[in-house]
Amino acid sequence: MVSEEIDLFGNPYVARPTKRGRPPHEVTKKTRNRVSMLVALGWANPRIAAALGVTLPTLHKYYFYELRQREVARDRLEMRRFEIAWELAEQGNVGAFKEVGKLLERNDRMEIERKMGEETKDEGKPQERVGKKVIDRQRAIDADADLMSELEREASHNVGHC
């Protein structure tokens, strides 16, 4: 029985290559899970390829399905975390039960933020950005109006004293 040595990162260790060029890439369940995890973490394709030690075309060729799941990968990872924590909590693990509570609170916060984001979009047309000149002009108009109202108050106050 030949025991396969692995390096620090869990990859097969090759003492000295016997052939020129790269060895053919072998797809395993472990590498598929790694790609799915890195996609869920938001890694870019070139970074994932570099981490796996493959070229970008090889990554696209063998992991097309995993890369296509980018939109839902984070949600699936969160779902799996919740599922594992729930299973452990049902077995009586107090730490897992606390983690379920944290995950629930986090989920509730995310839902509230999502709803608030939808409400602000629905409130009407987007506000235009106002430049410094427009702001300064409006401040000057407001200052003039304040000054005029103050002068009118003083004038009416002085009329009463005469």
Rank of each mutant, 00 (worst) to 15 (best):
K98N: 09
E99Y: 04
M148Q: 13
K115V: 06
E83N: 12
Y62D: 01
K133I: 05
G92V: 00
S149Y: 11
K115N: 09
N158A: 12
V54N: 03
W43G: 01
V130N: 05
K115Y: 05
L41S: 11
L88W: 03
G117F: 03
H25T: 15
L104D: 05
D136G: 08
F9E: 13
V134Y: 07
S149N: 10
E119S: 10
K19I: 07
E113W: 04
R74I: 08
G124L: 03
M116Y: 10
A143E: 13
R22I: 09
A50S: 12
V72K: 12
L88K: 04
I135R: 15
M110N: 08
K98Q: 11
E111F: 12
P126Q: 11
L88M: 08
R80I: 11
P57E: 04
P24I: 08
T31F: 08
L147N: 07
W86A: 03
R153T: 07
D146L: 15
V134P: 02
L67G: 00
K115C: 06
R76K: 15
A85I: 02
L88S: 04
F82P: 00
Q69L: 03
R153F: 12
G117T: 02
D142E: 15
R22L: 11
K61W: 09
T120C: 02
A50H: 06
D108Y: 11
T31E: 09
R137I: 06
L88V: 05
R32Q: 12
E105L: 12
K102V: 05
M110R: 13
E118N: 10
P46G: 04
E123L: 09
R81T: 11
R76Y: 14
V2Y: 13
V27K: 11
L38P: 00
E111A: 08
Y63T: 00
K115F: 04
I135G: 04
G10K: 03
M116I: 06
M148L: 13
G42E: 02
V14Y: 08
V130A: 07
V130S: 06
E78V: 02
R20H: 10
P17C: 06
S3H: 14
Y13E: 12
V35Q: 01
A145D: 06
G53E: 02
P23M: 14
Y65V: 09
S3M: 13
R68A: 14
A50I: 06
A15V: 07
T120L: 02
L88T: 03
E150F: 07
R68D: 13
M116W: 09
R76M: 14
Y62V: 04
K125A: 10
E152G: 11
P24F: 07
L103D: 01
D122C: 08
V134G: 08
A73S: 04
G117S: 05
A155N: 11
S156W: 13
L147K: 05
H161C: 09
E5N: 14
Y63D: 00
F64M: 12
E66H: 02
E4L: 15
L52N: 01
G124T: 03
V39C: 01
W43I: 07
A155E: 10
